[in-house]
């Protein structure tokens, strides 16, 4: 089960990490997108907990509505917790015509999850994303910023997943 994001509590350690990120961005509110990306990288579930958004809004300072707009507008920013290894499967035409359905089916089968659920160990989620510019490796997935592909057989998918176990 994906943990309940409303239960997230902001620790002193995370607070100081966020402070450091804000310092790196010169407390410049125009750099909010970069700030949010950096904060998200600090959270093992790769998302911006609500408490963290409130914290950034107060410390920067910036209106919460601007932060919420950014989090919900940009695909790379997430409102809800994800797996520690979120598997982003490219769902654009180039990957679709290279049978990414098979890839998706293999992932679902091997992991026993569907969109919106996480593996029992909190390790994996599967997400459909727009073209990430790896059409020369279609069908491809992207896990924590690294592209893997082409993944045309179940065996290739299994090998890929084993790297993260």
């Amino acid at each position: 089960m994906i943990e309940d994001s409303s239960k997230f509590e902001i620790t002193d350690e995370l607070k100081s990490k966020i402070e450091k990120i804000l310092d790196n961005h010169y407390h410049d509110f125009t750099q909010i997108v970069g700030i949010l990306l950096d904060v998200q990288d600090e959270i093992p579930q790769h998302y911006i907990p609500k408490a963290a958004a409130f914290y950034i809004a107060e410390k920067l300072p910036l209106k919460l509505s601007v932060i919420y707009d950014c989090i919900t507008f940009y695909d790379a920013l997430n409102e809800e917790p994800r797996g520690r290894y979120p598997i982003e499967i490219c769902d654009s035409v180039a990957c679709k015509v290279n049978d990414n359905d098979f890839l998706l089916g293999s992932l679902k089968e091997l992991l026993g999850i569907d969109f919106g659920t996480v593996t029992y160990d909190g390790r994996f989620t599967i997400e459909k994303v727009s073209c990430f510019g790896a059409c020369d490796r279609a069908p491809a997935v992207r896990i924590n910023k690294t592209v893997y592909g082409p993944l045309k057989t179940k065996e290739q998918v299994r090998k890929l997943l084993e790297q993260f176990v």
Partner: peptide, 18 residues
């Protein structure tokens, strides 16, 4: 700025944060 846009495309909303 109690209300603002959030989301995109058909999911675009005018809403309060969260």
């Amino acid at each position: 700025e109690a209300i603002g846009f959030a989301g995109r495309s058909t999911g675009l909303k005018v809403t309060t944060p969260y």
